[in-house]
Design a binder for these strands. Structure first.
Lengths: 144, 144
DNA sequence: AGAATAAAGGATGCAATTATCCTTTTTTAA
DNA sequence: TTAAAAAAGGATAATTGCATCCTTTATTCT
């Protein structure tokens, strides 16, 4: 469904959302540990998210990553767009370039309603919504 | 959504279904050409489908691949199971190993209802159903 | 039986995604 | 103003999915 990068990205932002409510910051190491991801790879993803203004970062001692709770909430789709590209959802089930409403591939109609709904969901759901449903951030975001 | 192999497999079986109704057979070259896929790679996929009894093949002159229209219809999910594995649908949206109903990941519930529906659809839909909806096999299965 | 045809299967190459390493830049604090 | 902390960024490695090549086996037809 999504790339590994995208999975890490979503997990990381949820984690940040929960842990930096109080204005504190998290280092790459802390995030990677919490979401069970390789540290240097996670660093790259976090950088991308910062560049696209989805999360914030501060260099130097006491620095780290955080999300600014005064700015607008983060829609899940924003992360997907930035990491996996805008067209992650528009792809035809059979990978046909020329598949569309007028000239649908054999399973176009079967897929279309499914992916449309899922996309709409991710367009309306925010990371903040997801964070609310989590009791213990660590437990639910790690793999072990 | 599905792997390239799986896309080719679905297209190939649809094409076979349409073109071998009369008991004729198609060579790898003919299939690859029709569905716009690399020939040797397609050969591998067809082999796998034969091994799993989804399609049939005959060696030697006049041989090729075909689907036996006297045997039971092919459910789309069968192809997916064989090529991408049985768990292609059970994977959690965030790639967590330990995500399940009892211990759902943040987006588990959001995904579950949709992938359940899609899975059910592919469990009931047959290649024969899909073939019916196609007027010109070539035109709809190739990329160009 | 022998030649031609076509799939089967093993071994290998290539490219994208995933992951790692190392150096540079910025910031804080002593 | 120097040392340490921490992210940023460039270069490189490993893994995996995708694709190709070549030899072998089975079948048909002459």
């Amino acid at each position: 469904m999504f790339s590994k990068s995208c999975e890490y990205a979503i997990k990381a932002v949820i984690h940040l959302c929960i842990e930096t409510k109080d204005g504190s910051r998290l280092s790459i190491a802390e995030i990677a540990e919490a979401i069970d991801s390789p540290e240097p790879f996670t660093a790259k993803i976090l950088q991308t998210l910062v560049r696209h203004d989805i999360i914030s970062s501060a260099k130097g001692p006491g620095g780290g990553f955080y999300i600014d709770h005064h700015s607008k909430p983060v829609f899940v789709i924003e992360i997907i767009d930035v990491i996996d590209g805008k067209h992650a959802f528009e792809r035809c089930g059979l990978g046909l370039k020329e598949c569309n409403e007028k000239r649908p591939c054999p399973i176009h109609n079967e897929f279309a309603s499914y992916s449309r709904k899922l996309k709409r969901l991710l367009e309306t759901k925010t990371i903040q919504d997801l964070a609310k449903g989590i009791i213990s951030g660590k437990a639910f975001l790690s793999n072990t």
